[in-house]
């Protein structure tokens, strides 16, 4: 059975309750994500982006509403829902290679070729025997992406994976991620604070607003092929998103065609 929408969310509401305070992190979220698409989720701090991603990934299962991944209700995390955290989350005592091996299913544990293939994909073949402490932040994040991909997920969920990186490393990794997406044809969902990143990567840009967390707007962007950061299509899309967050007069940049 082919499911066109790999993710289907209907009337998702999530309330955090620590006994004293109730925080409505998500309210009545509806979202459909097509198989093979690239979706960006953007919004200010605290609007529930991580919460939503964690629910899709099965890391949080207490909510009301319906969340289907691949046609069935999410009850737990799994390898088919790859998750890249904001921190790289490599085990510090394992080498790069062993970190990936650790994540693999039993029947793939001895598959060195698989590990090498994905390290090559993120350009880190020379670092397979390095410890995480010997890697830069960007390199560690690439290993985390390789680790997720080596498990052949149907969907890859990325929670601000490049948030802590400098602008140049960030752009490089965005390019790499796009290439991987085109090559592996995996559905990707990225949460980000960065408007440029959201517009450049996502075919769909989901704009969220806080208190309570809601989806305000979903933009379809088309930057052409290949995508250009400097073209007018990009500038136009970026302006649209900016307008969601700032009043016209405040738009903090100008562009020319």
């Amino acid at each position: 059975m082919a499911v066109e929408n790999i993710v289907e969310i209907k009337h998702l509401t999530k309330v955090f309750n620590d006994g004293k305070n109730e925080v409505k992190a998500l309210e009545d979220i509806g979202l459909e994500i097509k198989e093979g698409s690239f979706t960006s989720i953007i919004g200010g701090s605290g609007c529930g982006k991580s919460t939503m991603l964690r629910i899709i990934g099965g890391l949080d299962t207490e909510y009301t509403g319906e969340v289907l991944v691949n046609g069935s209700k999410v009850t737990a995390p799994s390898r088919e829902k790859g998750f890249v955290f904001q921190d790289h989350r490599l085990l510090p005592w394992l080498t790069v290679k062993e970190n990936i091996r650790f994540s693999l299913p039993k029947e793939q544990k001895k598959n060195d070729a698989l590990i090498k293939e994905y390290l090559a994909l993120v350009g880190l073949s020379d670092f397979e025997n390095s410890l995480p402490k010997q890697l830069s932040g960007g390199m560690a994040q690439r290993v985390a992406i390789a680790r997720a991909l080596a498990n052949k997920p149907k969907i890859l969920l990325l929670d601000e994976p490049f948030g802590a990186l400098d602008a140049i490393t960030k752009v490089n990794l965005q390019e790499e991620l796009l290439k991987i997406w085109q090559k592996e044809k995996i559905t990707m969902v990225i949460v980000t604070h960065d408007i440029d990143e959201a517009v450049y990567l996502g075919e769909n840009v989901v704009v969220m607003t806080p208190r309570p967390g809601r989806i305000k707007q979903i933009y379809k962007t088309d930057l052409g092929t290949p995508r250009l950061r400097t073209g007018s299509l990009f500038a136009k899309a970026r302006e649209d998103i900016y307008k969601e967050f700032f009043k016209e007069a405040e738009i903090p940049f100008t562009y020319n065609i």
Binding site: R89, L91, F102, S103
Partner: peptide, 19 residues
């Protein structure tokens, strides 16, 4: 967070102890 990571990769308990 390492235990959370282990749930994503469906790591069995024995391996959780070891690794």
């Amino acid at each position: 967070k390492y235990f959370e990571l282990a749930t994503v990769y469906e790591i069995p308990k024995s391996e959780l102890i070891k690794n």
